[in-house]
Every structure is written in structure tokens, then in C-alpha cells.
């Protein structure tokens, strides 16, 4: 039973890694600015997912979220809680990473609007062509 859980879990983690590959491929290979941003979103989301998966654990029954439901009355309540709770640290770090990611994406999207305004397209190669042409004239 536990082996099955472990294997299924490993496969799930590998799928997140594959998603990250898809995301990085999109970031570096696609030429459309918004497509690049979409790829970045996939990449960073899968990365966050992966880290939450690292913080998951097996407990006696199903593990509980890292939140005490009642005030502990005895120090033993705390050790019992620590025996069933999942890892809270990756969750806190991921929340931080989500907010950072959102702020970067928002800024990049506003830049994309401006890029379109100047170039009439979202293709990142176009303005390079213009630059090469300009350099050729000099």
C-alpha cells in the first residue's frame, strides 16, 4: 500500500517536472511576448506545486493541514499535532513566491501592451530586425 502511494506520488512529481520543462521551453523558444508570459506562468506554478509536494508527508491516517484546530491544553497535544501535520514551511514560502510571481507578471503584461503600441506586433524578433536595419544604414 505504502509502496503504491510512493510510486504514484513520484509519478505525480515527475509530471510537475515535465510541466516545468514545457514552461521553460516556451519561455526560451516561443517568440510571442504573451506566449512567453504564459509559459512563465506555467513554469512558476509548477515549481510552486513541486515544492508543496516536497512538503507533503505520510501520517497514521490522512495528514492534516498545519493549523491547530483548538488551543492545546497539554504539551502532548502539540507532539500529536506534529505527528499528523504536513510541512508548513514550503507553504509559507510558496505564498510569498505566488505574490512575487503575480507582481512580475502584472508588470510584464503592462510592458507587453506598450510593446504592441510601439511595434504593432507582439513578436519579439521584429524590433531586432528594425535595429539591425538601422545599424546597417550607419
Amino acid at each position: 500500500m505504502e509502496d503504491l502511494v510512493s510510486i504514484a506520488f513520484s509519478v505525480a512529481i515527475t509530471t510537475f517536472v515535465i510541466n516545468m520543462i514545457v514552461g521553460t521551453y516556451g519561455i526560451f523558444v516561443k517568440h510571442n511576448v504573451i506566449k512567453k508570459i504564459l509559459a512563465l506562468i506555467i513554469f512558476s506554478d509548477s515549481l510552486n506545486m513541486l515544492s508543496i509536494a516536497i512538503g507533503f508527508r505520510i501520517a497514521e491516517k490522512y495528514p492534516s493541514p498545519p493549523i491547530l484546530t483548538t488551543e492545546p491544553r497539554d504539551p502532548r497535544d502539540l507532539t500529536q499535532f506534529a505527528d499528523i501535520s504536513v510541512d508548513p514551511l514550503p507553504q509559507a514560502l510558496v505564498i510569498t513566491a505566488i505574490v512575487i510571481g503575480f507582481s512580475v507578471f502584472a508588470f510584464l503584461l503592462s510592458l507587453a501592451v506598450l510593446y504592441y503600441k510601439y511595434n504593432g506586433t507582439l513578436d519579439i524578433r521584429t524590433s531586432l530586425e528594425v535595429e539591425e536595419n538601422e545599424e546597417g544604414f550607419q
Binding site: 511576448v33 510584464l108 510593446y115
Partner: peptide
């Protein structure tokens, strides 16, 4: 363009 390339 520079900001987008750098940013992404």
C-alpha cells in the same frame, strides 16, 4: 524591448 527581454 530591453525591459521585456531582461524581464522575461
Amino acid at each position: 524591448r530591453a525591459a521585456i527581454v531582461y524581464g522575461i
